[in-house]
């Protein structure tokens, strides 16, 4: 439980961060809240000779809201999200999700940027951001670029971000209508056995549009376009929900672990999604 030796850097601006990443290549890694990276280092599953702390970079902090446009700085913690009344009004699903991540101690430290950048299929924010069709903002030696959250995840811990890039913010257009983040876990502080993020817009008593993403049921988060489509135009009745669940089940690919075998996870995924849709529809 003692990490391999490393040098600690704490640059005061992004330029400094990028320069260090340039200089040390894959020997360097940024650290935000450290609550995913430090355990990996202590287990010596990650060796990071050069650790670059982002905490002094003020431009990565803060939440800005303009109408329904929300931008969340990479260093915003899960606690900051819970503690932001305006965000709670504009995009309440963020708070609902954050409250289901870990425990208060972890949420004081864990950042949205780290959660999204990490690429761990167990993290809850990536699925949520896919559900919201969020945009991930990166900066690198060649300037800035944007990647859709739905295109960002390639495999476990493999993302569209280059090693030399830093995630600066996440932005999205907050959807109106109903929402739900539903998660089953073994205990407080556990990652999901299965989790579902759902948003639903209602018009004329029917589902106008719906977006559905699942967490920890594949090696990446899974935005199930077909599941959302299955609800559209329906009254979100039992048959429609069944169709959405069936579509979702076609898109996920869970593996067996200590949380249970594949058949169990698939069953629970269906139940959790059913509950999430039901709650989102009630709120729509």
């Amino acid at each position: 439980m003692i990490p391999a030796p490393f040098d600690y850097h704490r640059p005061s601006d992004l330029k400094g961060v990028l320069a260090l990443l340039q200089e040390h290549g894959d020997e360097a890694r940024v650290i935000a809240g450290g609550h995913s990276l430090i355990p990996m280092m202590k287990l010596r599953m990650a060796e990071v000779p050069h650790l670059i702390d982002l905490q002094s970079i003020d431009s990565l902090k803060g939440i800005s809201i303009a109408g329904t446009k929300v931008t969340i700085g990479a260093l915003v913690t899960q606690h900051d999200i819970i503690d932001h009344p305006e965000l709670g009004r504009v995009a309440p699903i963020l708070k609902e999700t954050s409250l289901q991540i870990a425990d208060p101690q972890v949420r004081y430290m864990g950042t949205v940027g780290g959660n999204v950048a990490n690429g761990d299929p167990g993290n809850d924010m990536p699925g949520l951001m896919q559900c919201l069709d969020a945009t991930i903002h990166l900066i690198g030696p060649n300037g800035t670029r944007e990647v859709a959250a739905r295109d960002y995840y390639e495999a476990a811990y493999m993302t569209a971000r280059d090693d030399g890039e830093v995630l600066t913010a996440i932005s999205f257009d907050a959807p109106a209508g109903g929402y739900a983040y539903e998660k089953q876990k073994r205990k407080i502080g556990d990652y999901a056995t299965a989790a579902a993020a759902v948003t639903i817009q209602k018009a004329g008593g029917k589902v106008a549009s719906a977006s559905i993403a699942m967490t920890n049921l594949s090696d990446t988060p899974v935005w199930s376009e077909a599941a959302g489509a299955a609800l559209e135009g329906t009254t979100c009745d039992a048959a429609a929900i069944k169709a959405a669940v069936a579509a979702m089940l076609d898109d996920i690919d869970p593996t067996e672990d200590n949380r249970g075998p594949v058949a169990f996870k698939r069953h629970v995924a269906g139940i959790i999604l059913t509950r999430a849709i039901t709650r989102a529809w009630d709120r729509a």
Partner: peptide
């Protein structure tokens, strides 16, 4: 009796 084992019990009894 964790979640999946309870689920498995219910499943074997045909409760799903």
């Amino acid at each position: 009796h964790d979640h999946w084992r309870i689920w498995q019990t219910a499943n074997k009894l045909g409760l799903h």
